[in-house]
Design a protein around this nucleic acid. Structure first.
Length: 424
RNA sequence: GUGGCUGUAGCUCAAUGGCAGAGCACUUGACUGUGGAUCAAGGGGUUGUGGGUUCGACCCCCAUCAGCCACCCCA
């Protein structure tokens, strides 16, 4: 045997079973996106590196993007995220697009990272954005979309939660406890890292940043204040909107949610599973100057991204992924022997012409083998045309679930099959 | 990019430095016109890859690749 060339590190093969999950996931998020009136779009998979240099900068491009020169010498990047492409697409046609813009997309992305659980180098991501809407109700709509999606997949509100905070509120709260503006960026980072460090390490990290022990104590108190949101007009309206949209139970205020990305300016949120076993299922928030950064007029937006890897792990853990149906066709037409091969082939074709999905054997192997194949592939029905049936233009229809068999005229077979399938 | 753990049959895993095994899966038969169960038999391995130490290496050492875990970052 020749050695098998392995897959590229961090990439995945989608065997039919995995492909079914991906397709199912796509179906759910398409449904939710369109339920809220969002239009599907996509950008190129290949982009010039300059597109990311402008905005994402540093880490994402230098360390995490797949970059290579094309034959003309330009540096090409396999897109590590969609937002810059979105910003460009909006800026390019800013004058003719109809705002507010509601757009969603699902496609592949690449990041050159060390793969581990919930993180691969090639992954699929759902991006959904609302651009050009100002009120906190817009933020609530995006969170409601995330919550509705989770709900549609069967995840319950005691299994997953969307945690929400607001950066403007946090800025104000930090000023209230006398932490000066110039420290906010590093304090945000401090807050973001709290769960990663031991309490002692976290405290010394805080003091290293230059916080006094009084400021530190106040910060700890602040992060324990789950009612902080009530001080924000924005968040009061936000939660009220979620209430009337019927998804409030999926959403919780958490003063510790900050999100790593610097471009978030207002509401930030992320979905996590109950046990906090996995990294964030989805993450997003409100951002300013999305379009301004690439040369358009300033426009604000709110949106989130969801990778396929973590959500698949969560859905699997909570048993929400539907059982795999190996065969897309419900019926298998067997081949009795060499002489009957063309009879079966022709019969299968007539069933297809009648609108049925049909799998037809192409080799005259032992019937027992074909039935075993049918069993493993999960066919509901098997058609058998032996010499006796063939002589009278009949066919035996065997129901593998009820373990019964009926003999009918071939001309009536399609109708009979449709009845059996419809009957459950 | 940094540190750690693990790579043995299709899968899950055994095997004091001394003959590479089990369960499941697979193939065949019992059953020459009928699936799941049972029974019987059988096939399957360059022990991730390449070096080294040793009389002898799945086992020890080095390198490399891959998977996983923690950083980093984030979906």
């Amino acid at each position: 045997m020749k050695p098998i060339i392995s897959t590229v590190k961090g990439s995945r093969d989608f065997y039919p079973e995995e492909m079914a999950v991906r397709k199912w996931l796509y179906g759910r998020l398409q449904e939710v996106s369109e339920t809220f009136g969002y239009q599907e779009y996509d950008g190129p998979f290949l982009e010039k590196i300059d597109l990311y240099a402008a905005k994402s900068g540093e880490e994402l491009v230098k360390e995490q993007a797949f970059v290579f020169p094309d034959r003309g010498g330009d540096l090409i990047t396999l897109r590590p995220e969609l937002t810059p492409s979105l910003a460009r697409m909006v800026a390019q046609k800013q004058g003719e697009l109809v705002f507010p813009l509601r757009w969603w997309s699902f496609g592949p992305f690449w990041r050159y990272e060390r793969p581990q659980k919930g993180r691969s180098r090639e992954f699929f991501q759902w991006n959904i954005d609302l651009i050009g809407a100002l009120g906190p109700e817009a933020d609530a709509e995006l969170v409601a979309i995330g919550a509705t999606f989770l709900k549609q997949t069967g995840l319950k509100s005691d299994e997953v939660t969307i945690l929400v905070n607001n950066r403007r509120l946090m800025e104000k709260a930090l000023l209230d406890i006398a932490i000066p503006l110039e420290l906010h960026k590093s304090v945000f980072r401090l807050i973001d890292r709290r769960d990663k460090l031991s309490p002692e390490a976290w405290e010394s990290y805080a003091l290293e940043l230059g916080l006094t022990s009084e400021q530190f104590m106040n910060l700890v108190g602040l992060l324990g204040n789950t009612s902080l949101w009530e001080q924000s007009e924005e968040l009061r309206r936000f939660f009220a909107a979620l209430e009337v949209m019927g998804v409030r139970e999926y959403v919780r205020y958490d003063p510790q949610i900050i999100r790593g990305l610097d471009y978030y300016t207002g509401t930030v949120f992320e979905a996590r599973d109950r046990d906090g076993e996995f990294r964030a299922i989805l993450g997003g928030g409100r951002y300013d100057n999305l379009v301004g950064d690439v040369g358009g007029s300033p426009l604000t937006g709110v949106g989130f991204a969801m990778g396929d890897v973590v959500v698949s792990l969560v859905l699997k853990k909570y048993g929400k992924v539907p059982a795999f149906q190996p065969s897309p066709a419900p019926i298998l037409v067997t081949v009795f022997d060499e002489e009957r091969l063309s009879v079966s082939t022709g019969f299968a074709a007539r069933l297809r012409a009648a609108g049925l999905r049909v799998n037809c054997f192409t080799d005259a192997t032992k019937l027992q083998k074909q039935l075993k194949f049918a069993d493993k592939m999960g066919f509901r029905l098997v058609a058998i045309i032996g010499p006796e049936e063939a002589a009278q233009n009949q066919v035996a229809i065997k129901d593998l679930v009820s373990r019964t068999q009926t003999i009918v005229q071939q001309s009536e077979a399609a109708t009979v099959i449709q009845q059996i399938l419809a009957g459950g």
